[in-house]
Write a protein that binds this DNA or RNA. Sequence first.
DNA 1: GTTACGACCTGCGAGC
DNA 2: TGCTCGCAGGTCGTAA
Length: 290
Amino acid sequence: MPELPEVEVVRRGLDQWVTHRQIESVEVLHSRAVRNHLAGGKDFCRRLSGRTINAVSRRGKFMWFALDDDHAVVTHLGMSGQVLVQEPEAEREKHLRIRVTFQDGGRAMHFVDQRTFGGMAIEELVEVEHGQRIPVSVLHIARDPLDPLFDPRTFVDGIRAKNTQVKRALLDQNLISGIGNIYADETLWRSEIHWALPTSRVTKVQAETLLRNSIDVMSEALAQGGTSFDSLYVNVNGESGYFSRDLNAYGREGEPCDRCGSIMVRESFANRSSFRCPRCQPKPRGIQLD
DNA sequence: GTTACGACCTGCGAGC
DNA sequence: TGCTCGCAGGTCGTAA
């Protein structure tokens, strides 16, 4: 599942392969991949033909290709999206949704997505603080903790002001972006905090600890090329990352905790799973869980 | 305005 | 062997 480190690995690869190249043609092979481009697939293809990609940028899990006409192709990988750079004669992937070729005749860009939760859309770029320009649909997304302009105080004050569970807050892309289910569990394990702790009871020190651990775990994952459990997450060259070997919580149900040796448990959380150590991350006092 | 929850989607593995 | 069903989870729309 692509979260911040995985998306950043892809962004870096694409920045190397597609920046400053002029698009020749675009094929949309599955309409759902451009469902957020309201003018439709034909318009998507027509408007991109002849445009040059100036840069590949990212905020949280959102990535965009800045074009030479004040617009950008906003791209979200969803749960299973991949952006690959392939030789022009390469065999088409089973779940190829969008294919972009370039006028230099070099490697093409393939958007591959098995579960079709991801997609692309052309959007206007608007100026925000510090002269940055971001797509309209990304305006509501908070800066991610690896962003040099991320404000720790805003996060610390923000999470303590909320009225929800701490894991829900970590997954709230309006508060802090880039964290998904895997890195939320890893952050909570490192912080020795239960996922259901009410944010109203999070101390300033705990909030600072959560932030520091989220930065650490995602930085470490980024250094290893991201986390992958199967072929669903790969970089632009189709290679998997190695961070799954270093996970302390996610997917470790029934295994001993790396810190205390207690058996890790899996619990249902918001229609998905949450993994924790019952000793290091005890249930908060006074909290009733199903 | 804030929070919670269902829908979207498809491949895989378990169970029968 | 083949079928059914549950699970995986990021984002958005809607209801409360």
